[in-house]
Amino acid sequence: MTERLDQQSASAARRRGGGRPLGTAIRYLIFLGPAALLYVPFVLKPLIETFGLSLFAWNGVSAERTFVGLANYARALGDPIFWISLRNNLYWVVTSIVLPMATGLVIAVLLSAVRRGQRIYAGIFFTPVVLNLIIVGLVWGIIYNPLIGPLNRLLRAVGLGSLAIGWLGDRYAATPAIMVAGAWTFFGFCAVIFLQGLRTLDREQIEAATIDGAGPFRRFRKIIVPALSDQVTLLIVMSIIGSFKVFDIVYVMTKGGPDHASEVIATYMYWQSFMNGSLGYGAALAVMLTAVVAGASLAMMALRERD
């Protein structure tokens, strides 16, 4: 197939002839020009400016900015809310690796075993992935609502009324509650990725193992898990990056409250920049966040290369 395509395309190209190899500059211009036109002014330049801004004290409106060197970075290190935010980000990393990935894996294994309706099921599980986070925040806000929410109703109905707390207003429960909503938007994605991986799995291998007397858990551990290592790495990288960048869902559900307890770096940075008028400090937080994400991603890639 490829070969035929190969010949066809090559001969097509020959027939029409024309086209000399272009000079390097022109190649750059044609191929990377359009991307640069967008990327440089709207991403790269602001990023560099953010770095610059992090060295100043600025309230966002005054004409002069005061150069403070690395003081904004030092301030972060002594700021308890910065550490709360960072800790929450790390919780997000761990939870989003465990919760949606585990659910997604189970769903994918189940899905791979059904013959009919696989696409419909996959579609349903994927639905939350396509919704915007305003919707997600509103929907889950109602579920957790202490006055009308079905969650607390359910808990009381089954005699667990003592667990019926004000989820999003509780300093310990708020972050886990948001994470569950976050997992809802991500497990379908994980399931689809895993399902793709399972399709390549050798059925005979599983059956052989079954005949050898391997139980379902052993089969899962010895055959399925190793076969999905690519998918696992991918999802872990995505989870790490996504968990450090998490913003919208926290913003729409708690705005980082109560008492900054569910704050993550991105929401705290947003609050410092836009609500607290400390744009230089906000920029320093942004730079630190970028460095953390970059470091984590590079480390993951390095690990992957080594394997």
């Binding site: 960048k245 991105a266 920029a283 942004a286 966040l289």
Partner: peptide, 8 residues
Amino acid sequence: PLQAIIVS
């Protein structure tokens, strides 16, 4: 993260 560059 988008929030990191949003001010600039």
